[in-house]
Each structure stands twice: as structure tokens, then as C-alpha cells.
């Protein structure tokens, strides 16, 4: 079950400089560790602001890593230079969330797809053939080459973005919420495409999403992020169906199911879980509170016991 990891992140910390003079930096990731296996998909699930997108960007060299290490294929890429990145772009690629802003509106689809090929010094003739192949691969018509992104629907644009990511036959694709801007039926088709490509090419995915259902469907392993930390990690089936961490449990039960009767059950379960967790928190909080509250207790004459009650 344990294959060789193609990419590992160990205690990665990402900090954005604070606004203003001597401002405290904003810490988006607090020491995150993950591993992605060859040919497998790691689903990364979390809410907005949890740092899941930042982790993906850190791997692409788009976020400032201030601690920890990222290795790809045994090579440390934490602070890869532009030159190393150019070499890495053969192996690591990206599909972004928004197909409307991830394609330059002024360039034709052919030019967009030719870009990564040109960087790697592929001859224009070969590039043309490769582009034709790519369009076939993602199910777009050949005449798409001379069209502009705005002449396509959201789903088709995401196909163009996938084709661009595939152009150099990478070994890992970071997918940052690639289906969340799409309609339900389009999402289904694009997910199918992702699965199909993985089966055919053995590419690994880091699949970032806020939707537990999407992540369950496409991932072998799942990591759950909450406030810049990974709170639970393991095989998809386990994490997304019988999670251990209270947050994942809340997340699972919060997602509504398309059946009124089952949804009512789920809702009741969720409310029960929330009540239980609140009680646990209250108990834990009482203990923690008793310990923590004492030092910064400014008010005089209030004993620790009073505060807890």
C-alpha cells in the first residue's frame, strides 16, 4: 500500500509579510506535512482560509515558504530558483480554480498551449502536433486552436487549462479547486477527465477542494486542513466516511445529501454531534481554562474556580 512518495512536504511553514512597518507576519501554514505517492491522488480538503490553496501554491513556488522542506523525487525544491523551476515545470504543473482568469484573455488557445512547450525549447512543428494531441486528449475540437478563451464555456476553458497542464507530460499536477466554479454536470465530466488521464498517464494529483464529496470521489488519500494545520490524514474511504477528528466529523455531516429523508437524519446527527462536541469542549475548556486563565487573570479577587463555573 505504501508506494514511493513523489512529493513530500515536511513541517512546511508559510508566512506572508504583515502590512505596515514591523507588522507581524501572517502565518498561513503552521508546519504542514504531507506525502503524495506516484500515480495516486492526495485530496486536500478544508474551508476557505484553512490554507489548503496556500499549500498547493507553496509546492509550485508561488508562496513564500519560511520553514520546513518540500522535496520532489528526492530533490529539495523548497527554495528552487527560477532556473530550477523551469526544469521542474516539466514535472509539476497546475490547474487553477477559475477557468475565467487562469487563461490570458488576449491569447488564442493554441498560443496558450504552446507556451509551456516553447519554454522547454520544443520546436514549433512538434509543438503543433503535441497541441493537436492535447486537444484530443481533453475532448476539445481541433479548431479550438484559433479561438480565444472567451469563446468557450467554463467547462471547456477548464479543459484548456488541463491541456496546458498536460502539455509537458508532468508527473504531478496541483489541482486547486478545479471543479468548484463549474456546473454539476460539467463537474462530473471534468472529474471523469481527471480520472481518465490518471489511468492513462499515471500522473499524481494534489487535489485541493472544499467539497468532501469531490475529494472522496477522486482521491486515494485525503488530508483535512483546518486553520493552517492538517488535522486528519489517511485513506480516502476512512477519512471521508468515518472520520476521527471532530472537525472532519462536522464537515462530513454539514454537507447536505440529495434526499429529504436521509438529509433529515444527517441533520439530526449533525446537531447531536455539535451538541456533544460543545459539551466536550466545555469540559476540556474548563480544564484548559483553569490552567490558562490564571496567568492573564487581571481582575483581582476572582478565584480560578469562579471563572470555570
Amino acid at each position: 500500500m505504501n508506494g514511493t512518495p513523489i512529493l513530500t512536504a515536511t513541517d512546511v511553514v508559510v508566512e506572508y509579510p504583515g502590512k505596515g512597518f514591523r507588522a507581524k507576519p501572517f502565518r498561513a501554514l503552521h508546519g504542514v506535512s504531507i506525502a503524495i505517492e506516484q500515480g495516486k491522488t492526495l485530496g486536500l480538503v478544508g474551508e476557505s482560509g484553512s490554507g489548503k490553496t496556500t499549500l498547493g501554491r507553496a509546492m509550485l513556488g508561488l508562496a513564500p515558504v519560511t520553514g520546513g522542506a518540500i522535496t520532489f523525487d528526492g530533490q529539495d525544491i523548497t527554495h528552487a530558483s527560477r532556473r530550477q523551476r523551469r526544469a521542474l515545470s516539466r514535472d509539476i504543473q497546475v490547474v487553477f480554480q477559475d477557468p475565467y482568469t487562469s487563461l490570458n484573455p488576449a491569447l488564442e488557445v493554441g498560443e496558450i498551449l504552446a507556451e509551456p512547450l516553447a519554454v522547454q525549447g520544443v520546436a514549433p512543428r512538434e509543438a503543433k502536433a503535441r497541441i493537436r494531441e492535447l486537444l484530443d486528449r481533453v475532448g476539445l475540437p481541433q479548431d479550438a486552436v484559433h479561438r480565444l478563451p472567451r469563446e468557450f464555456s467554463g467547462g471547456q476553458r477548464q479543459r484548456v487549462a488541463i491541456a496546458r497542464a498536460l502539455a509537458l507530460s508532468p508527473r504531478l499536477i496541483v489541482c486547486d479547486e478545479p471543479v468548484s466554479a463549474l456546473d454539476l454536470t460539467t463537474q462530473a465530466r471534468v472529474l471523469d477527465l481527471f480520472l481518465e488521464i490518471q489511468q492513462d498517464t499515471g500522473v499524481s494529483y494534489l487535489f485541493v477542494s472544499h467539497d468532501l464529496d469531490v475529494v472522496r470521489h477522486i482521491s486515494h488519500d485525503v488530508a483535512v486542513m483546518y486553520r493552517g494545520e492538517i488535522v486528519e490524514q489517511g485513506p480516502a474511504e476512512h477519512v471521508t466516511r468515518t472520520p476521527d477528528h471532530p472537525y472532519t466529523q462536522r464537515l462530513l455531516l454539514a454537507s447536505p445529501v440529495p434526499d429529504p429523508v436521509r438529509q433529515e437524519e444527517r441533520r439530526a446527527n449533525r446537531l447531536r454531534l455539535l451538541a456533544e462536541q460543545r459539551e466536550q469542549d466545555a469540559q476540556a475548556g474548563a480544564i484548559v481554562g483553569a490552567v490558562v486563565a490564571a496567568p492573564d487573570d487581571g481582575a483581582e479577587g476572582i478565584s480560578v474556580g469562579d471563572r470555570v463555573r
Partner: peptide, 27 residues
Amino acid sequence: QTLLASMLEDKQPMTKLTVDAAAGGTA
């Protein structure tokens, strides 16, 4: 039916969601 079939809840993971995915282009 198509819409409901596209829902991921309760589906077998890693399986095709659409009958004819390869025929794309209309996505």
C-alpha cells in the same frame, strides 16, 4: 436524471460519472 446522476454523494469513488465522458467538447 442527469443532474442527479452527477451528484457525487453515494457514488462509488473513482468511477465514471457520465456515460460518455470521452465525447466531451460540449462541457
